[in-house]
Nucleic acid binder design. Structure first.
Lengths: 381, 381
DNA sequence: CTTTGAAGG
DNA sequence: CCTTTAAAG
């Protein structure tokens, strides 16, 4: 069953129009069926020039919402391979979270958290657009823990996920949140990586990947074009234990930088997601002992610096240059989260010329369900 | 923590002596340290002629019980391999069963079950020896479900397990049940197959395998020699989906038959365990639809027939020739157990000349925790 | 420590 | 459907 969304907004913002269709893509953007609406309409020709898009596929799938607003998706019977029964497409998850055996906290106390914000731009303009980003570390596990209840409370206009770890054909029905246009970008490899973007307003265009044949197999990037900016949702490759994939990661950094540069000449860019690097010593609890570990090597940190030098701002650090102990990731082991032994790996990085539009940027460290917490950006656009 | 055992015996039987040591073997029998006692003493020379025993191994391990009878075993720190933390040897299991998400029943209502028996031999002699056998489908999972509480209630003199799926070094402390001599036979492949034998009375000898180099890598057989008989605990190879391992299985049948023959010339044999075959149509719910499935092929059934023709008795069927609907295995899927759509795959097969010693043979179909249920043999010896 | 999928049942 | 492991984080 789809979630019912209890809107609860503090400041004024532009009206959101519900008419909706959904896009699910495994490393590719599928045809749209629904009609777009409102001011941010996009022409057919615009949408069809999907440069980065790669059409791979099997198991394609789409879902249109019903008139009463309840998400309903096709329920094809899974084909049998031998005796092994395959899960049907997007059935509700049958299992609930095994709260019993968990050693780490999984439940958020949403009732006691405050998601409101009266933040304004430097010029005093109130926020009217909210973007959230979350490395969910497996959307199916998150759903079992009721982690997507976050959306009921945060109610962002745009929601970006990383590490969904779910092929399109295995998406549970609970992932089809009502009221958003939904875009899925899965890795070729089942259960690995994967990103998703939910948007109340239909983007002018949505593309997948950063134009690198190899890297784009891993479902790491979704770009949504809006009237005033590009939003790029990324899950940057982890450099791995023993830094085995550091070379791949550094190459990715270069390709991403080039990719953003091309967008930035057209419109301001908002890059969000898990950048898999703590930029400076202030961005993690144990800088001294982690210089040889993935996420805090010299090379990764320099990559972040080089990116910013292209003309981007780390919005959180821009607003809170001296704030310590504010992280977005805590290892599952060692009771790290309870001790706030963490890393700031998730960012909203935006074009310098857009920084005047920023109202606030917060790390939702009290929201559980993953080893990362969500982050939220408040903008006036 | 080790289990405390609440003895509750209905009929008289010979006294059991507690002094205890333990043997844990990965495909091999380790040196004993404890002193054997009582009438069934075994000479050093006898014990050292372990013909079938194969000394492979790594990760050897032993445990001696403390004076107050509480099982205590060495707690070597797991060595680290890279960043990956290995579990320490035989620590108590930290996680409890995820009762939440289970679709199948896992808890036995021991309080309402009757494990007593007034059964007698044909000649009217009361039982004085009880042997239980259970394919536990993963001893660690069973323990999380408190499945070994079965022992507190059944309180057998000998307990045979199949599919322990646990290398010796990963055995949880809860597996070290007090009051038994314990023998473990694990497969070379971690988490696969594996058998165990617990005995209140120390066997005259214990050997592993059936004398086949290949087959004996899989930890499928433990033979315990007693004064009056041999007890052979087996986990017969499954023929697999699509019968891919049927040839291996048929070879196994031959080797086992030859192995038993050699024992049988010395003493009567009791073969117990998961024979992975439903012998006749009466032994499964759906004989018609399963003739091409592992466990009910012509070849497997004939293998069972050929074994019995060597001079053995299927004790359950001998006692209850027409009893229908009495099974020892139900597939986890399709709610099979609740519907009693099952198979009789677990047996006590014994030498014809020993059948006069049988008092009863029962399938404990109300004991949960595995896809098999325990079976229990009552004997007068 | 946790999430995936795979093999095996 | 369930239990194991391996790979990845």
């Amino acid at each position: 069953m789809s979630q019912r969304r209890g809107a609860k907004r503090a400041a004024a913002k532009k009206t959101i129009v519900p008419p909706v269709e959904e896009e699910i893509a495994t490393n590719s953007l599928e045809e749209e069926t629904g009609t777009s609406s409102e001011e941010e309409r996009i022409t057919k020709s615009q949408r069809n020039s999907k440069k980065q898009q790669k059409l791979v596929e099997e198991g394609e799938q789409r879902s249109d919402e019903t008139e009463d607003g309840d998400a309903k998706i096709e329920n094809k019977k899974g084909k049998r391979t031998g005796n092994r029964q395959q899960k049907s497409n997007s059935e509700p998850l049958k299992k609930v979270a095994k709260t019993d055996g968990k050693l780490n906290k999984t439940d958020s106390d949403f009732g006691s958290l405050d998601f409101t914000s009266k933040s304004k731009t430097k010029d005093g303009k109130p926020w009217n657009l909210k973007i959230s980003s979350w490395n969910v570390s497996g959307i199916r596990a998150l759903i079992k823990k009721n982690g997507l209840d976050f959306l009921k409370h945060e109610d962002p206009d745009v929601f970006c996920m990383q590490e969904t770890k779910c092929s399109t054909k295995n998406l549970p029905a609970e992932a089809i949140i009502d009221g958003y246009h939904k875009y899925w970008c899965a890795a070729e490899k089942d259960g690995y990586s994967g990103t998703s973007l939910f948007s109340k307003v239909k983007p002018l265009s949505v593309t997948y990947g950063i134009g690198d044949k190899e890297q784009d197999k891993e479902g790491r990037t979704i770009t949504a074009e809006y009237d005033k900016f590009y939003l790029v949702n990324v899950y940057v490759p982890n450099s791995g234990r023993g830094l085995v994939t550091l070379p791949k990661r550094l190459k990715w950094n270069q390709v991403l930088k080039d990719y953003l540069k091309k967008l930035d000449v057209k419109k301001p860019v908002i890059l969000c997601g898990d950048l898999n690097v703590a930029h400076n010593e202030i961005d993690l609890t144990n800088p001294k002992t982690n210089t040889k570990n993935a996420g805090f090597t010299k090379e990764e940190r320099e990559g972040m610096t080089e990116l910013l030098e292209e003309g981007y701002i780390d919005s959180f650090r821009h607003l809170y240059p001296d704030k310590t102990g504010s992280y977005t990731f805590w290892a599952y082991f060692g009771n790290a989260r309870a001790k706030n032994v963490g890393w700031r790996l998730d960012y909203f990085v935006l074009s310098e010329r857009f920084v005047g539009n920023v109202c606030d940027c917060v790390n939702r460290s009290d929201v559980y369900g993953s080893d990362h917490c969500p982050i939220t950006l408040f903008l006036n656009v």
